[in-house]
Amino acid sequence: MNNKLYAVDEVIDFINEGRLMSLSGDEKVLKKLPKGNWIAGTIPYFMDEDLGKFDQNKIFVNFFDQNIIDFKIKTYDETSIDQIIPNSYNNGYTLLIIPAFQKIHHDFALKAENMEGLYNNPVVGWVSGINLNSDDVPKTFNGKLDEEYIDKAVAIHIKLPEDYFAQLDIVNIFERDEESPSIEFYFDSFDVLNCLVDGKETNLAEYIHQNNIDIKLPLIADYSGASINVSIKEVDIENGLVSFYAPVFESKVYKFAKPIENYLERFEIKTLDYEVDNEFSCNCILNYLYGGLEGQKINNIKGPITFGEIAYQLLNQTLVTLTVDKI
């Protein structure tokens, strides 16, 4: 198993050998692939084995056929997305790719936390995107059916032998600023007008504007020790509206993140003990852009740069990894 960027011809060979893969690449190269045991999402940004890079000609391959005993490739729309849990195996994991900015993207993000059995097995994945300097549309592909979608998610459900188990982990380089006010929201949403800032009703857009808050910094909620980011997409002063890349939840208390001086250094410190060839990892396009990760290397971390990361639920500005270990 060597997860990295490959030329299209090499990927076609893997497909013809029957390899089980998750692929990421530009739409133009993914369209050239034959039917087979693969799913894919569009993105031309990667952390390859040598450097972070933009590449529209190669395809990043994650192989999933080691130590597995069965698999299923499925397509989901917004009415069936909650079936990802019942469709998974008793012992295994699910790799999910969702197209960005579609209803299914929002629905999954809002529903995931309440899906029954969500934590029975790891659900890992990413949100497909596009070249930021193009008019392309984020897409997903089901190689088994030879179909591509703009509004549907694709998944591989993997069954592992009883003596193996899969585990998820995240690397969040941001920390909650304990000096920040506590921010609470009225309902679960991607968009916010008013909220409670230290218990006082406040328009969030105005608050961000008046306090000159750096919107490259996410809001962070504490999940029993895990820092979960929600990144700011837009602050619309005229309408008093703040939009996010993931939903904020009514049940959580958020704080702004502390500023970061060196993204790369933070990632390097936090990923020192990461395995060379874990099953899967992905990192956020915002980290790639704000941290200037193009042309840089972060230890052993490889994978697509994504418009959203999935580790049970939708995350922002976070590096996600999946490993499979023998019990």
Binding site: H209, I232, E234, D236, E238, L241, Y245, L289
Partner: peptide
């Protein structure tokens, strides 16, 4: 939305 005064780089792209 007509007037958007402050927006992240990525937000501008999506817009």
């Amino acid at each position: 939305r007509k007037v958007v005064k402050k927006k992240s780089f990525f937000g501008s792209f999506i817009d």
